[in-house]
Design a protein around this nucleic acid. Sequence first.
DNA 1: CTGTTAGCGCTTTCAC
DNA 2: GTGAAAGCGCTAACAG
Lengths: 332, 332
Amino acid sequence: MTEARPSSIREIAVTLGVSTATVSNALRGKGRVSPALIEQIRLEADRLGYVPDHAARALRTGKSNTIGLLVPNIGQPLFPAFAQAIERAAKQRGLAVLIGDSQGDAGQQDFEIRNMIARGVDALIVIPTRGTTVIQESISVPVAVIDSAVTAGNVAASDHREGGRKIARHLLALGHEKLLILAGPENSLVARERVEGMREVCFSANVEPTLKHSDATFEAGNVLGRELGLTRFTACAAAYDAIAIGFALAVRERGFRIPEDLSLTGFDDLMWAQIVSPPLTTIRQDLEAVAVHALSFVVGETDTSRIFPTDLVVRQSTARLSVPSRGDENAE
Amino acid sequence: MTEARPSSIREIAVTLGVSTATVSNALRGKGRVSPALIEQIRLEADRLGYVPDHAARALRTGKSNTIGLLVPNIGQPLFPAFAQAIERAAKQRGLAVLIGDSQGDAGQQDFEIRNMIARGVDALIVIPTRGTTVIQESISVPVAVIDSAVTAGNVAASDHREGGRKIARHLLALGHEKLLILAGPENSLVARERVEGMREVCFSANVEPTLKHSDATFEAGNVLGRELGLTRFTACAAAYDAIAIGFALAVRERGFRIPEDLSLTGFDDLMWAQIVSPPLTTIRQDLEAVAVHALSFVVGETDTSRIFPTDLVVRQSTARLSVPSRGDENAE
DNA sequence: CTGTTAGCGCTTTCAC
DNA sequence: GTGAAAGCGCTAACAG
């Protein structure tokens, strides 16, 4: 209601009797303008509540100071955390984030990429939907892919494989040799890396784990927990926290105790992992670091891709393999 | 590798020997251009891989076809679901979404609003951070506030109060009269509405519930579940699923059974509510409807604010009050 | 039906 | 140090 139309650089120029070029230069400390004039222009600018017109600047300079972020599904845990980290990093550089959700669909993903470019984003950060590839050669702006070390064109990722190794070593060190791996989706490179890491370690310890694939969801874990024969295993390693948590609930429902009867691990350290019962031993990614690096890459500060270490977070869902014994008053 | 610099409307005009105006008109079905020419221009446009320059169009028309979405904290459940719904609705209208996270901070929120406007968004949808107000008069673009019916300037919201009533009626109908309300943050209007709805119904049934305030988080619920004296209550209604879920885990750890010893309800129907054990009786909001209405409002299709009904989702966390073993028969 | 013309608000040579 | 002028690519009058 208050604003008529926003004031322009010209308005300032006219009221001060200078040229628009000078105003532009003064306001951005660019050209050689006398300190006194700069001050005067600054004052007048505030007085008028001047705000630079973004579209005009973008048209003239060819930069929009906006980046596109494409996630597979913002409704799924972890992606919001990623989005937040990226948004924070972007804000710090004065960049805004245009968000797109490919909704798990390769076609949507392509469409969004094109759309964002048409909208003039300066760069793109994409977390690819499972089983898709981002063909960077066909994209006219810098792209950072965040996925797994083996993904074509990956620029920033956690070391999922080493994370898998850490999990397996942890379980082995606790004496477990009858391992069930809830391996997640077969076509996910991230899941595959995690599982490969686990298996590597198992193999060199002469342990042969059993694999079960499923979606990377709570529900899928729950189904698995209800249906799987469990007596052959003493430990279970899930490729995703969501699977582990769904699994844990179902399994406890059946009367198995975690970790007494079955040790359980997740992967990602979702918010829920630490609060679920028992708190979940899992792998934590450094999302912030990944986000910052991806951004550094697309703004051209670096041209290397990086793989970031992960942390094993030991909580109460894993325990040393115990000789079968009695003794607990835990009614369930 | 392929793109040199994107081709412009002029390039098409020149190669075809027509004017840029005609090309512009043809491409957008705007003016009166002969079908034959339109076809020809279309073809040439594809051939050149023409993509309209967004900044130029925005500068010229004053519309960016972009809306800003401001959420309190995208890391918290429910907001991603909202964001997804809004993004979907926006995409359908050819609008892109610039996302901002106020990180629970009023200052950030103001900053983001200003920033988005400076970036030329056509409209703003804001889910205000707790305890803040959005002074719409000071904003030069249409704003839709999504919060609660009592929020100043609210445009679209779920009927939180009626949701609260539904919960209370459900619990009362099951015979519960010793009620604990986990009321959430004191300064949240949404929480307050939910709780008020519950209390209204209780009062008219001459039931006086006990209130406990806390953050709207899993952790806060967990703490409450560990610390509260519970024997005086037969049912507990939380103002948020997150609180309820955290509470449930802690309380079961103490040996209380849900729903046998204590009925429990949540609010929001997060993904986790249906998978947690036992699945949570809760209230589901129609996020899609809220999102669509907010968007309709900011694009000027409607000028009314709307409050949307919610659904009671009955699952296994609530049960009829079992006949007390100790003497307590206040027959009503 | 189609072309001409005039900018949107800004940055950027290039003169002075 | 400062100003004049030339557009960035597009759309919107208004002519023809």
